[in-house]
């Protein structure tokens, strides 16, 4: 995690101003609170070297608004954790970043989401190259009903990332190694991926994602279906992966957010309440709602 100290320190200056924004105490009980008392995002939502920039993002499911005016940066090689109570919109927001919400007909996204200079929601933007650059790991391990090898080779195959079979072998091996799964499966690459344990399956899914060499990896509660030992392995892996990739992770576990992320974003009822360095969020939250959530008073 030390590797990434630099971008964080740089972010410090950029966000210094928003730190000072005065906060009003919520007038009502936070549990039943309305959007009115959430107000502007506190902390430092912006990064100096952003990989992805989101500005004034609104998301609607039909008539219902799920995300209200969220602005956030994810810096290069940064791990940003998104936490918040169920239904607060953190997963919805994450799925906007590689347009996974496109599969839901009634979902509409407004505002600006950029991957470096690429406008993610530009009408002419094809989702296929976008998703090759912004990969995703899901809540439940979802290996395809194919062999371990074919699972990892799937992405390189559909994107045509290799010329010779040996190149593909290499991609598969490297990806499995980086997902620290190689040692466990190298002797049974051609047995079905569904035969692995839950934790192994999830690492297989991570290997499958990194085989495409994305720039950003989105993780939607990647450990919620796993036991503590498998979780620890994945968390180690995230720290390792952040050297090469930019990671946005949604999690229900505050300890996990504290362990793996550089910055933490707290969502509440579709609004981004507070973003700050992870340590700061968990030791000295600035917003009442954040404090209430991390001290376990609701959520």
């Amino acid at each position: 995690m030390q590797v990434v100290n630099t971008p964080i320190q740089e972010n410090e200056k950029l966000n210094a101003k928003s730190d000072k924004v005065a906060r009003e105490k919520p007038k009502t009980d936070p549990i039943n609170g309305s959007h009115a008392n959430v107000g502007e995002t506190v902390g430092k939502p912006f990064a100096k070297h952003p990989k992805m920039t989101m500005r004034n993002v609104d998301v609607f499911y039909g008539d219902k608004q799920a995300i209200y005016d969220v602005s956030l940066d994810i810096g290069k090689h940064e791990v940003v954790a998104m936490i918040g109570p169920s239904g607060c919109g953190k997963s919805t927001f994450l799925r906007c970043l590689n347009r996974m919400n496109d599969t839901i007909d009634i979902c509409k996204v407004k505002g600006e989401i950029k991957l470096e200079e690429l406008d993610v929601y530009h009408p002419k933007q094809d989702v296929v190259p976008l998703r090759a650059r912004v990969g995703m790991v899901f809540q439940k391990p979802n290996p395809f009903p194919k062999s371990i090898y074919d699972n990892v080779a799937y992405g390189p195959r559909i994107h045509g990332l290799f010329e010779r079979k040996t190149d593909l072998d290499e991609i598969v091996e490297n990806s499995l190694r980086r997902a620290s799964l190689w040692e466990e499966v190298k002797d049974r690459l051609h047995s079905p991926g569904t035969g692995l344990s839950g934790g192994q399956q999830q690492r297989l899914c991570i290997a499958r994602t990194i085989a495409v060499s994305p720039e950003v990896i989105l993780m939607d509660e990647p450990c919620s279906a796993l036991d503590p030992i498998a979780t620890a392995k994945i968390e180690e892996l995230i720290a390792e992966l952040s050297k090469k990739f930019t990671i946005a992770i949604v999690t229900h576990s505050m300890q996990q957010a504290a362990r793996v992320s550089h910055r933490t974003a707290y969502f509440h009822m579709g609004k981004l309440v507070e973003v700050n360095d992870t340590k700061r969020v968990f030791t000295n939250p600035q917003h009442k709602l954040t404090e209430a959530y991390i001290t376990g008073r609701f959520g």
Binding site: V127, R131, M136, V137, F138, N142, P143, V212
Partner: peptide
């Protein structure tokens, strides 16, 4: 979702 997430 897994396949879409890989850009299929």
């Amino acid at each position: 979702d897994g396949a879409y997430g890989l850009g299929a």
